[in-house]
Design a protein around this nucleic acid. Sequence first.
DNA 1: GACACGATGGGCT
DNA 2: GCCCATCGTGTCT
Length: 207
Amino acid sequence: MATRRVEAIPQEGSRLSRRFYARPSVALAKSLVGRMLFHDSPDGLTGGRIVEVEAYGGRNDPASHAFRRMTPRNSVMFGPPGNLYVYLSYGMHHCANVVGETEGVAGAVLIRALEPLLGLDLMAHRRGVSDLGLLTKGPGRLCQAMGIRLAQNGIDLMDGPVWIDGAPRLRGQIQASARVGIGIGQDQPWRFFEAGPWVSGRVKAPR
DNA sequence: GACACGATGGGCT
DNA sequence: GCCCATCGTGTCT
């Protein structure tokens, strides 16, 4: 498939610290837009720039998996900040979240879309498509492209095969809207994105 | 056990 | 825009 000219892509040595992740999920969500997400898997290295995220809380957020209580599935959300929370959606799609807050307090940021930059051929192979616009647009698609699965649930972003780079690179202003695909909690504008060709869904204004 | 339900995405109209 | 595959999870019996 066609290759793209990309800017210098930050590599090892500039991972975000646990201290960075230890903050309220809404603040963490905003701060993650524009940063690089990497996965160094046995298949190869893939990476993309985060362009769309959603914040999910705990007992304060009826749309969150952690709204009621801790269960085997959502336990990672209650764990240390800086871990990866992966779950299966609709029986076939994986969704990747970055855990925030502090240990014992649930909160996470769903990664909804990336600008695909590194390992494009591998992403295309995993996705079974060659269209760049369909590689990492949407939480399920980006997990498939990046090779993120249930096996990666709970891994540590500070010291693991999946990590986020320290320096944000923004090409526009960060915008906010209601979250996508939830039936409740739409009054909170907790979706944050940099408008452009890589963002999923449609732009909805907070109700 | 049984059962209802998705933080989705692909295909079709 | 509408339909629905597909299965882990949580809730209820």
